[in-house]
Design a binder for these strands. Structure first.
Lengths: 345, 345
DNA sequence: CTGAACAATGCAATCGATTGCATAAAATTT
DNA sequence: AAATTTTATGCAATCGATTGCATTGTTCAG
């Protein structure tokens, strides 16, 4: 019941009439320990239920074998899958993972990052919050000699390893698909443009239209429609236009696309016949709506694994900083019923 | 670029011609430091970009301000929401969260728990993996003087604070609802019976039938049908019986219920007219299927907050161990189309 | 003006593990 | 058998922050 004193290497040493040095060496399987003594030490350690105090060990060695992750929300499908991927790798390498969520608040993000610096983590993996444009806290990470890796929502100015989806290419492909299916007035629901990912998606959209000689219609581009509610609201406006769009690309998320679908249905627009709907992220539910929603898969789990793998590859070999560069994973267009005009059911 | 040496309290002390003691006291806002000196120290610390080394601090103080969480899968809605709830509280208390996933593997669970013990976490919050029946690793946690809290999937024998859903009551209510709607041959898809949560759901099911004088039909109770695929397979069998059920309760998860729905639709059973379907967990998609699925909400986020709140309440006041007891949160039946026979659309 | 009370600071040990260097003992070479 | 190398172990410092006790300086009551 009382906070029992835990066994230390000194306890083991005392019991065996040795010094802590030898015990430590034995436990670390170091050379220069007699085979028999080593066995004896390991056996006694097990008997005494010894567990190494990682704090002390890390303090001495100046490392922490810990990686910090900061994401807007842990319970969002995209992020929890990336984290699951990261965890898989870090676990294999005996690293710990400390998870923080910024809740899309810039202020909390800063606090989380600072807490992780305090913890002396070896690396911080971050996807930044939507708000905020001052990123000195990230520079601070680098100044403290901590590896910084950005993914998905990255800050262009901060020079680090970045793992992103090729949003532009994916969007280009998606819009081209819409055009091929015969849609001509394609609306765009865009996300906060201070985040590159949303900028890139917009660029892809514009490029696709240009490539197919379609005009860019300002009234079909709606700012900041990145929740289900905002998506719904935007759709209400769009479909009430004198010349409504014949397709809507919810570039921000499938949730937004879901809002679109619900409004379209309630306003008696036939999907995909009169209105095509395209989402982003391949949330599990997109398969289940009726009609199912065409969307873009981001290989989230794989992304997490890639991030962690890169970290270990680059730091295990040379002990220099990771070379800053951007690695792009090409997402995949998942074509479903909501855009399949040619084969209406 | 090089692993810069980080500022320590000694650096600050040297610069100000003081000792580390005073610096430490100032930073901890302790009494017995001159107001002016304190201000000066804090100012200099900020200028020198000082960050406390939490490892050293925790080592000295014998605490870690860290809580470890072990769950089967972080990217499962239920768990990621509970974790989000826990995180909210721990963040407020300046605690760190270390997350591990057991991947439903008993072996990995043991490794995770041991890693957390090594880390000297203050508390381990766990929901055990489906496999396994030896729980010495959990006893070990307690033996090391670490608080252990179990939630959802708890091990009865291990005496700790347990936070669970009142599965039996929720199921009783759910089945009663089915009966009220006029269903009479209700099948049960059950989960691994070594987990209490699934046992309780079965008990609730049996009680409800008994209360309404309905017979228990063995062939309508299917073991281990807890994925979408297994749910689908079980449904195929059930609906091919000479006397098929008129309702199926997928007690394991909504995913299982989804499998049921898909098979029922493909076999041309009308839902809810000819077959009622009831799931468990209130996954977001249950709202989106057609028909939408009646299910049971477990207040996941709230559950996470409750767990963390209890931990802090009990340890902050007295420094004894938390009183082992079971706290039950009553889940809520969410009635949707898949069981609303009386008002078929 | 002296002694007591108090404020502010320093000293040194401590938390537990690691590691370079020293030393003793054993094994090997000549 | 003496000289040298190798092996096993101990000693003591270190990582950075904290804290009980000691010391110095200051203030105030009598």
């Amino acid at each position: 019941m009382k906070p029992k004193k835990r066994t230390t290497i000194y306890d083991i040493a005392e019991k065996l009439n040795l010094t802590a040095s030898s015990v430590s060496r034995a436990l670390n399987n170091s050379s220069n320990v007699n085979e028999d003594t080593k066995k004896l030490i390991l056996k006694t350690a097990a008997e005494m239920n010894y567990k190494r105090n990682v704090l002390a060990s890390n303090l001495r060695k100046g490392e922490s074998k810990t990686i910090g992750v900061v994401v807007p929300r842990i319970n969002q499908n995209f992020f929890s899958n990336v984290i699951a991927g990261i965890e898989e790798m870090t676990y294999a390498k005996n690293f710990n993972l400390i998870i923080c969520q910024s809740n899309e608040s810039h202020e909390k993000e800063i606090k989380c990052v600072n807490a992780l610096i305090n913890q002396h983590v070896d690396c911080i993996i971050i996807s930044v919050a939507a708000e905020g444009n001052d990123y000195t806290h990230l520079k601070n990470v680098i100044d403290h000699g901590i590896q910084l890796i950005q993914f998905d929502r990255v800050v262009e100015d901060i020079d680090t390893l970045k793992i992103i989806n090729d949003n532009e290419l994916a969007t280009l492909e998606a819009i081209t698909h819409l055009i091929t299916e015969g849609y001509k007035r394609i609306a765009l629901l865009e996300g906060p443009q201070n985040l590159d990912i949303f900028k890139q998606r917009k660029t892809g959209y514009l490029k696709a239209l240009a490539q197919h000689n379609l005009p860019i219609v300002e009234e079909l581009i709606i700012e900041n429609a990145w929740t289900k509610e905002l998506g719904a609201e935007a759709t209400r406006k769009l479909l009430s236009l004198p010349e409504p769009p014949d397709a809507i690309f919810a570039s921000t998320s499938d949730f937004s696309a879901l809002g679109v679908l619900e409004v379209a249905t309630s306003m008696n627009f036939k999907v995909p016949g009169e209105l095509g709907i395209l989402g982003y992220a391949n949330e599990p539910f997109t398969e289940l709506t009726s009609p199912s929603i065409t969307t873009i898969d981001q290989f989230t789990h794989h992304m997490g694994k890639t991030i962690a793998t890169l970290y270990f590859q680059e730091t295990q070999t040379k002990d220099t900083t990771i070379v800053p560069r951007t690695i792009s994973i090409k997402p995949k267009l998942i074509i479903r019923a909501s855009t399949s005009k040619s084969q209406v059911i």
